[in-house]
Nucleic acid binder design. Structure first.
Lengths: 229, 229
DNA sequence: TCAAAAGTGTTGACCCTACACCCATGG
DNA sequence: CCATGGGTGTAGGGTCAACACTTTTGA
């Protein structure tokens, strides 16, 4: 009885589409898959699923990311709701999230299972429906976020080198960054700790590993620090 | 047949909740109303409605704003989707938009019809469900947007004085702004045109009216200019 | 020994901030 | 004539961007 006003209203399928981002070979990558069912079977698609009645939307997104990557330790943020009438065959409202994951933790067996691949954001193919727009919106949002929070660490493992971190930011902003200025800024923020070991994979000289100081990092996030570049 | 995969999925009521903002008496105001039906009948609520099958979400929001204000010339931007399981009695997913309107155009007869009022954002009462969180998120977003786009003009009429514009920005940022610095920045952006007349309502001396140059303004929006302050 | 990437400081330009007094006018 | 809000400029500090050479070491 309390809900009488709610009767006779239209109801909708609600999906989540996840832009799952990882960092590899000096570039941001997004996980996409061949769509396994009609319509547009075989087209490239973001990883998605339907929201179930017994979970909230963010939980759906987390579930979807877990399902397709095997990773549960993720950074997740909502991009928005996409509700064009003709955006799918049925009337489906999609809520889009982007997820930042450490690509090293990806369960590669799932790639075959779902016919999924990591594609450089600079080389994304045509995706089904409005998925390309979702990606564009996400990149804009990510750039915005990265300029305010040191969010990029979510894409890396526990330790990383400064050249790697720099190329990550270059990939996010899609433009080159001055090496000395980048280091200066990062190091003066005082959230990085230099380690003893070097990474010798990419140069003879080797680059020192760093890790970030979780406490100071969280502190800065709290304050909403302006981290431009 | 094409849609077989879509069968047996849960469907949801989808609402739009609108944070309708206007500027009056040196403060941002939000239009809220007494909820006319159960549950929580009589509680303070944002202006909302359900999405219909034959309209996209943004159209729903525009419809809702028009319905409750009589204004159709609005700036509208999505805040996000709110989908907690227990956020309403029924499982309702809400998509939130904020609207910036010229409060002078408000059809006051609608205030009585819907038991609605404009309340200063600094004096909002407890709202139903998660509406207070929606407002908080919106203010954060608005501050963000206002620092990047000269968005505030949507809250004013065709002409306005610099003191008014300043107090609008002070209301958005919820902190005082230096008069000279504010003017300097605005005027050097070269999107304002000084008019002949003065507004003598608030002082003996009177303040010159300005209007904004729509072309340059749109041009700047395009470029995504950084308009800090 | 040389190629290839890592690491390191300084300077000038610009922008942001802080700050105080005169002006115009209606009552 | 005076109280009230409108209008105006400058100087110092800090931040950002540009820029080139040395170091290390595996091949």
């Amino acid at each position: 009885m309390t809900a009488s006003f709610y009767l006779n209203k239209d109801t909708f399928l609600v999906a989540v589409d996840c832009i799952i981002m990882g960092f590899r070979d000096n570039d941001l990558h997004i996980l996409i898959a061949r769509r396994p069912f009609e319509p547009l079977k075989g087209g490239w698609s973001l990883m998605g699923g339907f929201v179930n009645a017994q979970e909230n939307i963010q939980e759906s997104a987390k579930r979807v990311v877990g399902e397709y990557t095997g990773i549960n330790d993720i950074y997740l943020e909502q991009v928005g709701a996409y509700g064009e009438i003709d955006r799918d065959v049925e009337r489906v409202i999609s809520v889009v999230y982007y997820a930042l994951v450490d690509i090293e933790k990806f369960d590669t067996s799932l790639a075959e299972k779902y016919d999924a691949r990591w594609i450089r954001i600079t080389q994304l193919p045509e995706l089904v429906f409005d998925h390309n727009k979702m990606v564009r919106d996400t990149i804009k949002l990510l750039q915005q976020r990265a300029s305010v929070k040191p969010i990029g660490f979510n894409l890396l493992g526990d330790q990383f080198t400064l050249p790697t971190l720099q190329s990550l930011y270059e990939s996010i902003y899609q433009e080159p960054i001055d090496k000395r200025n980048f280091r200066k800024k990062l190091l003066t923020m005082d959230i990085l700790e230099k380690l003893e070991e070097k990474d010798k994979n990419t140069s003879k000289k080797g680059a020192f590993y760093y890790k970030y100081n979780k406490e100071k990092y969280d502190q800065l996030i709290q304050q909403g620090l302006h981290f431009s570049l």
